[in-house]
Design a protein around this nucleic acid. Structure first.
Length: 525
DNA sequence: GTGAACCGGGG
DNA sequence: GTGTACGGTTCAC
């Protein structure tokens, strides 16, 4: 227990000013929660969850979106949704892709005009604007690049999407469009209120911001959701749909454009296919992002750009407010490098026995680390210096002690997440409605992701809840559990041939006819 | 061995 | 905008 003084200010801009002033005061130990952006603070303090519907006496509480006409609002509601309420009205999604080329390599904003812009919406809209003519079905000829850019703005205005999707569009398409439009003095009034395209600095990259529409760059999302060697649009598309889309290697685009004829037709087709692929990938992946948005309680725009660890962190920040906990600070740069200097021992890995094996069985723990966090009450607020085995769980190898009571902040949050997941899974198994089952499945997936990423908040040096002791204790128990399980399996004639962290493969050396009593093999948690 | 530079995706 | 944030590999010394 610590004493805190809560200071409320009238204007967000006063926060950094006051922060600087009180930091050095002798009576001040630490200043907390001084770096939560205003709009996030607002969502947290008011218990609002984006991407949920809110209807107040048949009217929208907020009116930034065009869906006013429908008398529904895609906005916040005061409580977390129940599964059935979360079936939102369909959002209009518009994807786009631009083409530009340079004989020597990547096109340069200063020299190379945009030659094509393709659109695809989730409601069947398809179009390729280009400064060259084509007999391609969806092609529309424009006079020059200036008109091309104007068509870009007009199309977004007339299609009026809720979501705008691109692939690497934060880094390539939008900045390229911005620079060309600046050169040709075309105003990029893309917002629902006619406001201009803006860029927000986010770390080492920018994000394109359009008022009233959620711009999502699918590229960083795909890096998070899929485990691939490369993340080109083609590779990702193949992974998700098992089909090849037409691809034109980058260095051939220039000749397609210059030579014309069939090669130019193919370029039109390729460009539109890219936009369509983005729509399809979006339709497949967005439900999960939306679900995470609802759970994490921060805007889709932000959540779609957060690494999983950050999503977990913001979820915990939201929960901290509910639990009356004060959020720990981000590490200073010196704290960060200090943390990086001390390494955490990872999971147990047994090098694979070389060769071809028959009768392979795989064992794995379900949510090993989350279960350990809960069952051993691993939380910074449960960590004790002196404690007996009676009152504390004591970790193997390193002997960190965690009191059994009361339940710590993080274990409590994970517990609720897993509980909610089980609840949804059980409704899902009993549901006969396919659509409902799909929605519920995405929801339980999102919760699973969140729970499984929770370990990271202790182990990743940049995070607010970083704790070497907690991270070390989790992996230590993890190693103990898997080794014990492997030993147990050996008693039943399984010979482990490879193990990694939360699971192992074994060959069965007994006779196949023998009955295996798998209750004895059940995992320890 | 160390620190800086570079890269991802995009055409 | 209560912000300014990656992580891994390669290269030059």
């Amino acid at each position: 227990m610590k004493d805190f003084l809560k200071i409320t200010l009238k204007h967000p801009q006063d926060v950094p000013k006051l922060r600087e002033k009180i930091w050095d005061l002798e009576s001040v130990n630490e200043v907390r929660e001084h770096d939560i952006p205003f709009y996030r603070r607002y969502l947290i303090d008011n218990g609002l969850f984006p991407m949920n519907m809110l209807e107040v006496q048949g009217k929208c509480l907020k009116s930034t979106r065009a869906s006013l006409e429908n008398k529904t609002c895609i906005f916040e509601m005061k409580t977390q949704p129940t599964p059935l309420e979360s079936d939102l009205p369909e959002l209009k999604v518009l994807s786009f892709d631009i083409e530009a080329c340079n004989p020597k390599g990547m096109p340069l904003e200063r020299e190379d005009p945009i030659i094509m812009i393709s659109f695809s919406s989730n409601q069947g809209f398809r179009k390729v604007f280009s400064t060259k003519d084509s007999s391609f079905d969806f092609a529309e000829l424009v006079h020059d690049e200036r008109e091309l850019l104007k068509k870009f703005v007009e199309t977004i205005k007339s299609e009026n999407p809720d979501l705008i999707l691109g692939y690497n569009s934060d880094v390539f398409d939008f900045p390229y469009i911005r620079d060309r439009a600046a050169k040709l003095s075309v105003p990029l009034e893309l917002g629902v209120d006619g406001s201009s395209l803006k860029f927000m600095r986010r770390g080492f990259t920018n994000a394109a911001v359009i008022k009233g529409r959620v711009n999502i760059d699918l590229y960083p999302n795909m890096r998070r959701y899929l485990q691939l060697d490369r993340y080109t649009l083609e590779r990702v598309y193949k992974e998700l749909f098992g089909e090849n889309k037409i691809d034109i290697p980058g260095d051939e685009i220039y000749s397609c454009w210059e030579d014309g004829g069939e090669k130019l037709e193919k370029l039109f087709e390729y460009s539109l296919e890219d936009a369509i692929a983005v729509t399809e990938i979006g339709e497949k992946m967005l439900p999960l992002s939306m679900e995470l948005t609802r759970i994490v309680g921060q805007p889709l725009f932000d959540v779609a750009r957060m690494a999983t660890g950050q999503q977990v962190e913001w979820y915990l920040i939201k929960k901290a407010f509910e639990y009356d906990e004060v959020v720990p600070n981000k590490p200073s740069s010196s704290q960060h490098s200090q943390r990086r200097g001390r390494s955490i021992v990872g999971g147990y890995v047994k090098d694979p026995v070389k060769g071809l094996h028959d009768n392979i069985v795989s064992f794995d723990f379900q949510s090993l680390y989350p279960s350990i966090i809960i069952s051993k009450n691993i939380s910074p607020d449960s960590l004790m210096d002196n404690c007996t085995e009676e009152d504390c769980y004591i970790s193997p190898e390193i002997g960190h002690k965690f009191r059994k009571e009361p339940v710590g902040f993080v274990p409590s949050v994970i517990g609720k997440v897993l509980q909610e997941r089980l609840r949804i899974k059980s409704i899902m198994t009993h549901s006969t409605d396919t659509r409902e089952r799909q929605i519920l499945n995405v929801q339980q997936e999102a919760l699973k992701r969140l729970a499984n990423s929770m370990y990271g908040v202790y182990g990743f040096t940049l995070f607010r809840w970083y704790s070497l002791e907690c991270a070390d204790a989790i992996t230590a128990w993890g190693r103990e559990f898997i080794k014990k399980t492997m030993k147990k399996a050996e008693e039943f004639n399984f010979k482990p041939i490879y193990a990694d962290t939360d699971g192992f493969y074994a060959t069965y050396t007994g006779s196949i006819g023998n009955k295996i009593d798998n209750t004895d093999l059940n995992k320890e948690n």
